[in-house]
Design a protein around this nucleic acid. Structure first.
Lengths: 294, 294
DNA sequence: ACCAAGTATCACCGATCGCGATCGTCGCGA
DNA sequence: TCGCGACGATCGCGATCGGTGATACTTGGT
């Protein structure tokens, strides 16, 4: 068993496709097929149940996968540790981010990190399934760190460091009955049609929790993955929305109203695993993030 | 970087000699030399400072070594996990034991383990530096489990499960002034010449602690690594000793006396690491050990 | 100065790996 | 039912890798 074989196996398991795994690994498909076959022969067990249409893990493969990731992470940490001693950090840092990274000034943070550690490749990925998806990816070792928004108690295996927060304001079309008000309550907007992010996104969790805590409900009739388009949807009368002020670049045709008597604070945090040590590059980014805090 | 290279590097680091490492790995010396050189080239750092007389770790090598062990352990756990799913446990379990294994009936325990898991190779090693040395080896990932005797608070990274204990009795030559007594106190034997195990052994720690707790001292003039020879030394007038009864197979010429008013309980425990998960085979042995408890 | 022990280098050879071509399989749509 | 596209497995080939055995070089002790 060698790391190269584990790397190929993990790629196939994650992609559920030899051809895509080969592309990701920058080798031809037959090389991946052969390597996985050799690993199976060496371990004396079938790891993948596959045909021309479908690739699934066997029980043995399911047992191997998390441990293969641990071994690959350990090897990368080993490489990073040597690089740190010998002459600067090396390696790749896999970072998950929410789509609304402007809450955090991430470009400035990551830019500074890159200037300080040019040998580290930053591989950022946005969260197709919101912050909850990032948390899952962190737990499954597909990410090293994640910038998330996760109201409530985080899961036991994740540590959150709060970084920034913004209040969500109500955005209504300027001809809306509530538009003349300076502030409203949740009761004023209960039952109305809302535009919001999908379930799983942090801002969506904040708004859902607020309504639930007040024993009220609303209708989310349109889900948008990018809050920067929220004001546009509001402007065209598709509903009202709770958005941070920074997401409303152009406020013509809409009004922003405060919502009184409720916690609509949307907090962004850095999520790190607690069940394993993080690598040298991850530690460096965590330190830099702390420097960026006010 | 591959596991094979890490394995060769770890072997050289531990043996401090390429030729001995090669013997341990069952390859020729030049294969080890070439593999380490390739690893150094790939990492862009010198890992070992060596010449024909001496092999030492560099700073980069010192940074790599614990992480290399983690990666190798992870790979072995991966292999074991697949074997467990697929058809029984495989692999090697590295067990440290005190020399005085009769306190524990280890042969019976390990015999039963072997019958249940014939695919697991048990590699046992005794403790040249006593239980403390076993604890060090466990922390440094050179052992998976250890049977130790460690009075007092164990270090934070080790978990102890008490398994058995025996009281240490005073053994004197039968013409000794105390020989007519049924029991003595520590005060009676303070200042006398003792035969005992070396520092680091569990039984030695028990006796040293008892004298220290009583504010008394004694002279340990002969240190013996095997307590089974203790009574023989006493018989020949080389000193007196505190030994468990089971270690005195032949009591002619000596008397065994109780020592009142002091804790001379010598406890044997199973030491497991707390900072990392143990492999499948280790978990199986831990379970079997629990079954063997009364 | 000599020697023994150990590491590094070299030539050689068999094994391994990745590539490119191709075969076989499978699910889907007509 | 059939054709098709996509995908995994196999094969031949060339390049590279890894281990062996021999040997050169180095080093510390006598």
């Amino acid at each position: 068993m060698e790391l190269r074989q584990l790397e190929y196996f993990v790629a196939v398991a994650e992609e559920q496709n030899f051809t895509r795994a080969a592309a990701r690994l920058h080798v031809v498909q037959s090389a991946v097929s052969a390597a996985v076959k050799t690993l199976e022969r060496e371990l004396g067990a079938s790891l993948l149940d596959r045909n021309s249409k479908r690739v699934r893990l066997t029980d043995a493969g399911a047992a191997l996968l998390p441990r293969a990731r641990i071994a690959l992470d350990a090897a990368r940490d080993a490489r990073d540790a040597v690089a740190e001693v010998h002459g600067g950090l090396r390696g790749t840092l896999r970072i998950g981010t929410m789509t609304s990274i402007r809450l955090l000034h991430l470009p400035a943070l990551l830019g500074e990190f890159h200037r300080r550690h040019p040998g580290v490749l930053l591989h950022t990925s946005v969260a197709p399934h919101g912050s909850q998806g990032l948390i899952d990816a962190l737990a499954e070792r597909r990410l090293d760190l994640a910038f998330v928004s996760l109201p409530g108690t985080p899961p036991a295996e994740i540590h959150l460091t709060d970084l920034a927060s913004s209040v969500l304001d109500l955005v209504v079309p300027d001809d809306h009955p509530l538009a003349t008000r300076e502030a409203v309550t949740l009761a004023d907007i209960a039952g109305l049609d809302f535009i919001d992010s999908p379930v799983g996104y942090g801002n969506r969790a904040v708004t859902d929790r607020a309504f639930a805590a007040a024993g009220l409900s609303r209708r989310v009739t349109i889900e948008i993955p990018d809050i920067a388009t929220g004001a546009e949807h509001v402007r065209h009368g598709l509903g009202i929305a709770l958005l941070p002020r920074f997401a409303v670049a152009d406020d013509h045709g809409v009004r922003l109203l405060s919502v009184a008597g409720v916690d609509l604070n949307w907090t962004a945090s850095l999520a790190t695993p607690v069940d394993r040590p993080v690598g040298a590059a991850a530690r460096a980014l965590i330190s830099l993030t702390a420097e960026f805090l006010p």
